[in-house]
Design a protein around this nucleic acid. Structure first.
Length: 592
RNA sequence: CGGGAUGUAGCGCAGCUUGGUUAGCGCGCCUGCUUUGGGAGCAGGAGGCCGAGAGUUCGAAUCUCUCCAUCCCGACCA
């Protein structure tokens, strides 16, 4: 039994000034966590109970699915991460340190290498597979910008699983098993989620989905169809390309003077204002223009190459989408000095005429998938103050390929069914993907097949942010006055509030109720504090968020028909229950 | 890493423009009395290297510079 008279807890009346999102604000105010370091939090007794409850639920679901738990050091030597390339590829987000002899170590951001080496260490036969292992551990990432409390720390707890299979069919089965386990987990945690297609990012790999909790505080943007069940992270949305248009009827491309038109807006105004440039039947819009953006792409080995991207002028480059496409390369701005090195690029008037590896700029040129053969564009003529009209793809220019870098907008066509898509934000709860053989090959994990030949297993990777999920639950399940935990992870089943004069019948009644319920197996948080006004007890109970609040107060003073008040934290509904029935009533409430 | 804001007691804030006693207020904390169904009242207390460092000055929370941290907005991820 947790007695508030002795519980290590101090609730705060005011919101902490540095907390913006509800979960952070309330977890600090209610005495669950304290900030201890940039991006790091200490867990207080109430918080640690909730955390461990959550961890237990995760563990139960994993074990039920037949996955086995292991545990690794967080402090790891560099060598395995060098073999897979991640010592460098992971970049600044990796915490690196040296031991007293100067040897390089890291604090693990994830443990793919260690799982792979562990299987290599012990298993050698196809008969040993499949196997799925998991860990629940603290991970370290030197985030450029930790924020929103537990939602994005530099130190956080992750449950990650890895599957090892002999072939693609087995991998698919393992993937499906994890997907099912995660659905079961999030249902049990009463967390809303959407499963979206995703990019595998820095981990490498192919088939990939994310579980997002659809909430505005989330950092991920995803797209979903208003008609069918398509949903994807915005990074993974494939633009549906229109059919190619025959060239036969299309007018020839003509270069025109368009003075002082370095931007799309000025260009559109200019071509609509000049009679000889006007569209025969309507006004030109930004969507008729072809915008060419040049960036530098830096690879992990430090090499830098320029890349030109062509996209309809009414769309911006979405940096997240672009980065996902270029990974592990990262885009950097194309600076004035870079323009100086490429005199064929005329800032504000760059056109496909000079772009492409076969043209004068020798810069790789990738275009938006909408720019199919036969589409005609107003675009830069590569000399200051000039644009070309009706420059037609496939006839007048050819790109080196396509790239998904243009922003996705609400109302765009669903790649699946063509209906409008909508855009929403979500918290990334989990990410599952098929890693393939990248790690197994790099670390030389092989097993023998039926013929005694070595074969490389294929792997899957499945992560759940445990500390983040706790914050997401708080984010999903709270109101203006405090938290409302799902019973399974709540710090207690019943919060007993004693309200009445010391010396009255309330204390003995509350003490006995608490003891009886505890004996019956319920978890009790008992506000037995003296010299604390009733208002404070009620406010604290609502802030702390135990799902059921039992008030032992004036009702028990009625000698004829003593009652207690039972309040549902989430709905606010209160009912008076005869004291004699209270135990049975409360026990019944806590049955699943 | 760029842009903006903020660092004063456990928490929330004032003071800074215009430098000048012992740095204030509310909450919380300690002592006593009263109070006990919605963050109680009275009285008395404790608690501060004013984010750090350097400088200007007779004198700095206050002015200057540098750093650090926090939060928000943009580029990474569970």
């Amino acid at each position: 039994m947790l007695r508030m008279s002795t519980l290590f807890l101090r609730t705060l009346r005011d919101d902490p000034a540095d907390a913006e999102v509800a979960s952070h604000r309330l977890l600090v105010r209610a005495g669950y966590i304290r900030r201890a370091a940039p991006g790091g939090f200490s867990w207080l007794p109430l918080g640690w109970i909730v955390f461990q409850n959550l961890e237990r639920v995760v563990r139960e679901e994993m074990d039920a699915a037949g996955f086995q738990e292991v545990h690794f050091p967080a402090l790891l030597p560099k060598e395995p991460y060098e073999l897979t390339g991640r010592w460098t590829e992971y970049g600044d987000n990796l915490f690196r340190l040296k031991d007293r002899r100067g040897a390089d170590f890291l604090l693990a951001p994830t443990h793919e290498e260690m799982f792979t080496l562990l299987v290599k260490d012990l298993y050698g036969s196809y008969k040993d597979l499949p196997v799925s292992l998991y860990q629940i551990q603290t991970k370290y990432r030197d985030e450029a910008r930790p924020r929103a409390g537990l939602l994005r720390g530099r130190e956080f707890v992750m449950k990650d699983s890895y599957s090892f299979d002999i072939d693609d069919a087995g991998l698919q089965d393992s993937y499906d098993a994890h997907r099912a386990a995660y659905i079961s987990l999030f249902e049990r945690l009463e967390l809303p989620y959407v499963i979206v297609s995703a990019m595998s990012g820095a981990m490498g790999g192919s088939a990939s989905e994310e579980f997002l909790a659809p909430m505005d505080v989330g950092e991920d943007t995803f797209v979903r169809c208003t008609s069918c069940d398509f949903a994807a992270n915005v990074e993974a949305v494939a633009t549906s390309a229109p059919d190619a248009i025959p060239f036969d009827e299309l007018p020839a491309a003509v270069v025109h003077d368009t003075p002082d038109t370095p931007t799309i807006a000025t260009l559109v105004d200019c071509v609509n204002a000049a009679d000889e440039l006007r569209h025969p039947s309507r006004d030109w819009t930004a969507a008729d223009t072809l915008k060419n953006v040049v960036v530098n792409v830096r690879q992990p080995d430090g090499s830098v190459e320029p890349l030109a991207i062509g996209l309809p002028g009414d769309r911006e480059v979405d940096m997240k989408r672009l980065e996902a496409q270029l990974s592990p390369g990262v885009p950097e701005p194309f600076a004035e000095a870079d323009f100086a090195k490429h005199p064929t690029l005329v800032k504000g008037y760059i056109g496909p005429g000079v772009l492409g590896t076969d043209n004068s700029s020798e810069i790789r040129y990738l275009v938006d998938p909408r720019i199919v053969d036969g589409t005609a564009w107003i675009t830069g003529a590569d000399t200051t103050g000039n644009h070309v009209i009706n420059l037609t793809a496939g006839r007048d220019f050819t790109a080196d390929g396509t790239i998904e870098a243009a922003e996705v907008r609400a109302g765009d066509a669903c790649p699946n069914c063509g209906a409008d898509v909508e855009i929403a934000r979500g918290i990334e709860l989990a990410h599952i993907f098929q890693l393939g053989r990248k790690y197994a090959e790099a670390l030389e994990l092989t097993v023998q097949n039926e013929n005694g030949r070595p074969v490389t297993p294929t792997m899957g990777s499945y992560g759940v942010g445990v500390s983040r999920a706790l914050a997401a639950i708080a984010e999903h399940s709270h109101d203006d006055i405090g938290l409302c935990w799902p019973r399974e992870i709540a710090p207690a089943d019943i919060h007993i509030v004693m309200a009445g004069k010391e010396g009255g019948p309330q204390r003995p009644a509350a003490e006995q109720l608490a003891a009886t319920l505890e004996e019956a197996g319920l978890r009790i948080l008992f506000d037995d504090r003296v010299k604390v006004s009733p208002g404070v007890r009620f406010k604290d109970a609502e802030l702390i968020g135990v799902p059921t609040i039992a008030v032992v107060g004036r009702g028990v003073a009625d000698e004829e028909n003593p009652t207690i008040e039972v309040k549902d934290r989430r709905t606010g509904d209160r009912v008076d229950i005869p004291l004699a029935d209270a135990v049975d009533h409360l026990i019944a409430l806590c049955q699943p």
